[in-house]
Simulated assay, not measured.
Amino acid sequence: MKSYKFKVNENGYTVNIKSHEDNIINLEVNGTSYAVVMKEEIKKTKTPTLVRAASKRPSEPLKVNPTSSKTTIVAPIPGVVLSIDVAVGDSLKVGDRMLVLEAMKMENNIVCEKAGTITAIKVSVGQQVLQNEVMIELG
């Protein structure tokens, strides 16, 4: 299996590991065979697994008040604005894409959830936004 060379007190040793099962290792030192019993079983190293704790509160859906005259579109997650597909004065219907937000190397389309006209755009392309930051206002 594996071969090692050691030098102890100016004496050379060649150690060949023949087999390893549970806590018994069969090896050969300078041509002489030995069976070595380990006191403890050798633990196999594992790649650590990162575990993310569950959120304490449920995610909040975008709340749109249908009777309100002004609606704000906020960032659902922190990210970078990749593109803005609307301009002030544009009339939108439900489902129209307003902008693309990149978060965690994924592109997220932010769509209109209430028909209306764009009254203000509070972000620009390349800008970083935080969660719940106002990006667009509809009137």
Rank of each mutant, 00 (worst) to 15 (best):
V8N: 00
N9D: 13
E10D: 15
G12F: 08
G12D: 10
T14Y: 02
N16L: 03
I17T: 11
S19M: 08
S19D: 15
I24F: 11
I25W: 13
L27V: 00
E28R: 13
G31Q: 05
T32K: 15
V37E: 15
V37N: 15
K39E: 15
K39T: 05
K39A: 13
E41Q: 14
K44L: 12
K46I: 11
T49V: 10
T49Q: 08
V51S: 02
S55Q: 12
S55G: 09
S55I: 00
K56N: 12
K56F: 01
R57V: 07
P58E: 08
E60Q: 14
E60V: 15
P61Y: 06
V64R: 06
V64K: 08
N65K: 00
S68P: 01
T71M: 11
V74M: 09
P76G: 02
P78C: 00
P78A: 04
P78T: 07
P78S: 03
P78N: 03
P78F: 01
G89I: 06
S91N: 15
G95R: 02
M98Y: 02
L101N: 09
L101I: 08
E102S: 06
K105D: 12
K105T: 08
E107F: 06
N108S: 12
N109T: 10
V111D: 09
V111T: 12
E113P: 03
A115Y: 04
G116Q: 01
G116M: 13
G116C: 09
I118E: 00
T119I: 11
A120Q: 11
A120R: 08
I121Y: 03
I121H: 01
G126I: 04
Q127E: 14
L130W: 01
Q131D: 01
N132I: 05
N132T: 14
E133G: 03
E133I: 02
V134C: 06
I136C: 05
G139H: 11
